[in-house]
Amino acid sequence: MSAVVAGPPAPHPTGRRMSVGRRLLGDQNRNLWFWTFVGPFMVGLVVFVIVPIFWSLYLSFHEAKGTVSPTKAVGFSNYTEMLRDPAFRDSLKTFVLFAAIIVPVTFALSLLLAVLVSRTRVMQTFFRSVFFLPTACSYVVASLIWRSSLFSGNPSSLANTVMRHFGENARAWIERPHPPWYWLVISSARLWLQLGFYMILFLAGLQRISPTLYEASAIDGCSAWQTFRHVTFPQLRPTNVAVLLLLLINAFQAFDEFLNILGKQNGYPPYARPPLVYLYYVALKEQNFGRGSAGAAILTVIIAVVALLMARFNRGDERR
């Protein structure tokens, strides 16, 4: 430590070899401060993220039932079992269906909101804030409100009160799978929660478009739709790609609203059961960490492949 107190830092070493301690501390003790500030987070990252990821991979190759320190290796059998499991395959179909609903609807509605808000001349900040506000709400809280107040099967719930005005009896929105009204409940909850966030992303994209392009289209006599179709939308391409990718990944992570809206005391119904919910039941309820980890690994690979494909598609698009 003598190097630390030996005197002022020497920015220009004059041929003299610096001591090891001095070099470890770095110029102006930068290394010391770097590790002082970054170190604790790094430790947290390693202990709570990196180690569990590798531990989970380790578990996926072992028979880990009711234990997280298994001893019996089983090769790829957890993986083959998961891929053969009809419930897991169904959960992947549920994800595809959910993504097919939520991705385009959120994309279109948030873009529409952004365009409308950016065009408005009065109270623009107010509208921007109001639409963004639900993003601050917790998914769990929103799910409980959706389940208990808006779409409860009670005759007094909001949805059933509206239905009564049309002469309909109270219906169980969440429990009855035919017709699948639960998709309306789940999708509307997520739309309410995330529309504002994507609207802000689109607004930022809209502000980057040069006004000269709009002036040119006005001089050319373009209609509002033509301006949107040929100026706004193509200019928003980088934002579009980012929003699509984010939406898709978010759809993959479907968990909070599904478990809190459809989950029951004794389990979860076999419909609208997305992959994370299924894995939660396999790993933490059945305590089969081996199968659960294998499922998580399969899911990670699928997300990575989809993200890579989208990036590749995007690059190909750029070249054109």
């Binding site: 998914y139 769990v140 809280v141 968990f255 909070d256 809190n260 989950g263 004794n266 389990g267 994370l276």
Partner: peptide, 8 residues
């Protein structure tokens, strides 16, 4: 229990 608040 299972139906209680639980987040990702």
């Amino acid at each position: 229990a299972a139906s209680g608040p639980f987040s990702r």
